[in-house]
Simulated assay, not measured.
Amino acid sequence: MNDMFQASYAWGNFSVLAVGIWAIVQRDSLDAIIMFLTGLLLTVLTDIIHISVVYPPNNYLTDVNRFSMGMAIFSLLLKPVSCYLVYRMYQERGGEYTFNIDPESSSDSHFAHNGVTCAGRDRNTYEPIDQQDASPQWPDSSKAAQQPY
């Protein structure tokens, strides 16, 4: 291994590669895809930091260092395309992530993950508790049915 990059660069990228292999093998797991996508996005940030910190001045660039930096930059340029393809794979497997910040249309927003839908600020499903004319949700305990003996 070249001494140009630290071991954290290799460990980060190889661990994301291992999670990617797990995501491909486990066809029914949405968690594996999410972990792979999160790892890819995280390594984009760490690769930028590694390349900017480690890049040597021009007079210290040997052919091996130039090739190593070129491949690291090429890998960094391909990662957004990989993130898009992994996100498409996530959608094909049934994953859906909808996030709406607009307060006007927040009654229509739902968050879904792994087939479980949770309502987020949907005021139509709430039962009002301050109105007296609303029918009670629970039966009146004073009119309990007689137990048959």
Rank of each mutant, 00 (worst) to 15 (best):
P136E: 07
D3W: 01
N13W: 11
L40T: 10
I24Y: 12
Q6V: 01
S52R: 11
A119S: 11
Y97L: 15
K143N: 07
P80N: 07
I21N: 04
V25N: 03
Y87W: 15
S8K: 12
R66Y: 06
V16T: 15
Y9E: 00
I49S: 04
M4Y: 13
Y55H: 13
R27M: 03
Q91M: 11
Q26G: 00
I73N: 05
Q6K: 07
N100F: 00
T38H: 06
R88E: 01
T117Q: 06
L45T: 09
I51D: 00
V19L: 11
A112H: 05
Y126H: 04
P57R: 13
L41Q: 13
T38W: 02
V54T: 14
D3Q: 13
S15C: 11
P136D: 10
P136N: 08
F67N: 05
L61F: 05
T43P: 00
A145Y: 01
L78G: 06
S141G: 00
Y97M: 10
L30N: 12
G94L: 08
E127F: 11
D130E: 12
S106V: 14
L78F: 08
I51N: 04
G95S: 12
E127D: 03
Q131E: 06
F5M: 12
P56L: 07
F74Y: 15
H113I: 09
M69P: 01
D31H: 13
A72E: 03
D130K: 06
H113L: 14
S142A: 10
F14Q: 12
R66T: 15
W11Q: 15
D47F: 01
I34R: 09
Q26I: 00
F74R: 07
R93W: 10
V116M: 07
S82G: 13
G95N: 12
Q131H: 02
N13Y: 01
A144M: 03
W138F: 12
L61S: 05
I51P: 00
H50L: 00
S105G: 02
Q91F: 01
P139D: 08
L45G: 09
L37M: 14
A10F: 14
L78Y: 08
Q131Y: 05
D130N: 10
I34H: 02
